[in-house]
Simulated assay, not measured.
Amino acid sequence: MIIKLDFQNMNLVRDLFNLQRVSYLVEAKLINFFEIPPLKESMEELLESSETFFGYFIGEELAGALSYTYDNKELTICRMVVHPNHFRKGIAEALFKYIEKEHPDLTIIKVSTGKDNAPAKGFYLKNGFILVGDLEVVPGLYISNFEKRKDEPS
């Protein structure tokens, strides 16, 4: 089940906080960079986020989450996290497709991930994104930027 996350529910926020920690730790190891912002984020900073969050639940467990910003028909995926116990179960794809349906008028979706995060890059390419370039964000760390235009076949 996918639902919009209610930040008034502190147990749910705690679950999200822990989920992103364990998920981004996997990426940190893949890209050999442990300063990924969500790994450094405090609970208070998460609560102050202006992103919209949706969660994927297996029973009562928050198994995955996606956050985004939406402006002028442009959606930017800010976070895509799945608990390592639930990798390769279609959770990220279900979240992604749900968000696309929530915004039928969007024209472009943007997302980025660590250049050395092969599983994430493969996921985005499989789901119709095009690599638009790599950017060095700090010395030695490159981020791959992807876009999916809604006027293009996927």
Rank of each mutant, 00 (worst) to 15 (best):
M1V: 12
I2Y: 05
I2D: 03
I3W: 07
K4V: 08
Q8K: 14
N9F: 09
M10W: 10
M10F: 12
F17A: 01
F17R: 02
N18D: 13
R21V: 03
V22Q: 01
Y24P: 04
E27W: 10
A28N: 05
K29F: 08
K29E: 15
L30T: 08
I31Q: 13
N32T: 13
F33C: 09
I36C: 01
P37V: 07
L39E: 00
K40A: 00
E41T: 09
S42K: 03
M43G: 08
M43V: 11
E44W: 11
E44A: 15
L46P: 08
E48Q: 15
T52F: 09
F53N: 01
F54R: 00
F54H: 06
F57L: 03
F57Q: 04
I58T: 06
G59P: 12
E60H: 14
L62N: 02
A63P: 02
L66R: 00
S67P: 11
S67F: 04
D71H: 14
N72K: 14
K73P: 05
E74Q: 14
I77R: 02
C78S: 13
M80H: 07
V82K: 03
H83C: 03
H83Y: 00
P84T: 00
P84I: 00
P84K: 00
N85R: 10
K89M: 04
I91R: 01
E93R: 11
L95T: 02
F96M: 06
I99Y: 03
K101L: 11
H103G: 02
P104S: 01
P104G: 04
T107F: 10
I108M: 13
K110G: 14
S112T: 10
G114Y: 07
D116L: 15
D116Q: 15
A118W: 10
P119C: 06
A120K: 09
A120M: 13
K121C: 14
K121Q: 12
L125Q: 04
K126A: 11
N127R: 02
G128C: 10
I130G: 08
I130Y: 10
G133Y: 04
G133W: 03
D134Q: 13
D134R: 10
D134P: 09
L135M: 14
V137F: 12
V137D: 08
V138A: 08
P139G: 06
L141T: 10
Y142D: 12
I143Y: 07
N145C: 13
K148T: 10
D151F: 05
D151R: 02
D151L: 01
S154K: 08
